[in-house]
């Protein structure tokens, strides 16, 4: 079936892409299906769980709530783009060491939310960390180890 598509240009993790996309496709689906960047997860598709959190033009967003066409011309960073070669981001290292990832499904979104925090507030308090990740649900850890990891990564940086 012929469906209307729109050509977009987008920079994801430093790579430039030009693609034909359906106007109804979410940015999350575009990342996962068209670019095969499956690190960003879908937990609800309604902007309630934060598993799909990414950074777009310096803002933390739920990629499930954004249409791909809205990302035209934008710069996007996902979990795949925050470690360089084999060097982990301090948050990734701290999440590993502090037991801040159990099942790991919320982890990519959680790390992106934490990165957004540290990008704007390099030495947050525990209270500020709790606020920064309030839009990211985790069902495994109870959040304490995540706060520890973010505080530890902030010190490391």
């Amino acid at each position: 079936m012929a469906r209307r598509t729109k050509r977009i240009r987008v920079t994801v993790n430093g790579e430039r892409y030009e693609k034909e996309v359906s106007p109804s496709k979410s940015l999350l689906d575009f990342l996962r299906m068209d670019l095969n960047l499956t690190g960003t997860k879908e937990g609800c598709g309604e902007g309630e769980c934060g598993a799909c959190s990414i950074i777009m033009n310096g803002k933390l967003v739920d990629s499930c709530l954004i249409l791909t066409v809205e990302a035209d011309g934008q710069k996007i960073q996902t979990i795949e783009g925050i470690s360089r070669h084999d060097r982990l981001h301090p948050l990734q290292k701290a999440f590993a060491e502090k037991g801040a990832a159990q099942c790991g499904y919320c982890t990519p979104g959680m790390i992106m939310a934490a990165k957004y925090l540290l990008d704007h507030n390099p030495s947050p308090t525990a209270e500020q960390v709790l606020k920064a990740i309030a839009g990211n649900l985790c069902r495994c850890t109870g959040y304490g180890s995540i706060v520890d990891a973010v505080l530890s990564a902030a010190k490391e940086r």
Binding site: T38, G39, I79, F95, A96, Y105
Partner: peptide
């Protein structure tokens, strides 16, 4: 740390 933790924190894990 869990043996599979690096895959998880980098988004490599296949769910």
């Amino acid at each position: 740390p869990r043996v599979e933790i690096l895959e998880k924190v980098t988004g490599e894990s296949v769910f």
